[in-house]
Design a protein around this nucleic acid. Structure first.
Lengths: 198, 198
DNA sequence: AACGTCCAATGAACTATATTAAGTAAGCAT
DNA sequence: ATGCTTACTTAATATAGTTCATTGGACGTT
């Protein structure tokens, strides 16, 4: 078993499926390593999202830019996570969401064609990605419920509980954007919560 | 080609994949027709959701019952749609969401085991369900964005545009629950919108 | 050191939505 | 018919969240 730069991703896959050395060799031919700079766009409307990105270092952000120029952050991705604009990636339609690298870092890029090729040559990968998408459904489901049924205070508390790594890594105004509130109100939320603790 | 009670579902599948007569015969053995009464629960916490339901007649509702006894409606399904608590169905964990028939009607039930069997015997079905779940991701994505970034007026307008069939079929307080507002406020929203039109 | 930029924090005034309470109209059991 | 319940409306008041203007700190540039 050769040690190489795709170890992290292979490890993740092996949590769900078994892969032979041959599989891994084939896999390697379809993956591309990309360095990211701060604020670099990996998916940029209206160009279709033609790849998925696996984060090995750094942090990505998925956001929508509305008609008024306001950004709505819909998801974050850190080390070990996949991200792209699935809507565009699945349908081939122009992307409506941006995917942006928030830090210098590194991602592994899997293009659509490479992915298709892998699906036919390594059928087990279908299972891996199916599980990935199932988990996406589940977590989006929870997010919808959260935003419908809980107050901003509660949402903030759950956010820092679920993504403790992000609290001090991501600027406040982006956390606010993810929570669906203004930065000013997030500030108020935080002081209110801090007051309660004492 | 024999005409039978599963026609609707086969038709839907054939929008995406091709099915032989043999496939359909096999499919039939895994599907069960169920009449629904008003307020009947198809998925009831904490019992795991062990099947998916395809609506042939009537209307289903997916909702969460919170600690305060308040129901939060997260989705509707009408004729031609599939529904279950995917979270529980995928993981096998106890269901946290209710799936309720809102009217007398009819659903076609596909159990987990039947579904697995079909996946191995009719591989193309993997594609059909993959597309189904992709669409679920896309529509949940939109819903999250909507509820985070738009006002209640806007959400109501989009709702009646997207689901015109539901506006007069579902009680107002359930639409309010779906929009994440109180019935009282929905009432205000509606009069406000009506006033604007004139 | 002086300057500009970016971000976090704060307070005041404002808007959107919730809560409570009361009234109305329709459906249904007695 | 009578009353009971359930869904919807309206209005008064309260709370959650926004907007705008200001301040101060951290950082990079000249």
């Amino acid at each position: 078993m050769v040690h190489h730069m795709f170890d992290v991703i292979v490890e993740k896959m092996r949590e769900h499926i078994t892969l032979s050395d041959d599989d891994i060799a084939l896999l390697s031919t379809c993956l591309e390593v990309r360095k990211t700079r701060k604020s670099q766009l990996l998916v940029e409307p209206p160009y279709p999202a033609n790849a998925e990105f696996f984060v090995t270092k750094g942090c990505l952000r998925h956001y929508f830019l509305d008609e008024n120029g306001v950004e709505h952050t819909t998801a974050f991705a850190i080390e070990g996570w996949w991200m792209t604009d699935l809507q565009s990636f699945f349908t081939g339609a122009p992307s409506k969401y941006h995917v942006e690298a928030m830090e210098e870092g590194e991602v592994i890029k899997l293009r659509k064609e490479g992915r298709e090729e892998l699906f036919t040559k390594i059928p087990a990968l279908n299972i891996y990605f199916r599980i990935l998408y199932q988990n996406a459904i589940i977590s989006q489901n929870e997010r919808i419920l959260n935003v419908l049924s809980t107050t901003a205070d509660e949402r903030y508390l759950r956010f820092i509980k679920k993504y403790p790594a992000l609290e001090n890594r991501v600027p406040q105004y982006l956390i606010a954007s993810y929570l669906g509130i203004t930065p000013e109100f997030l500030s108020k939320v935080k002081t209110r919560i801090a007051a309660k603790k004492s």
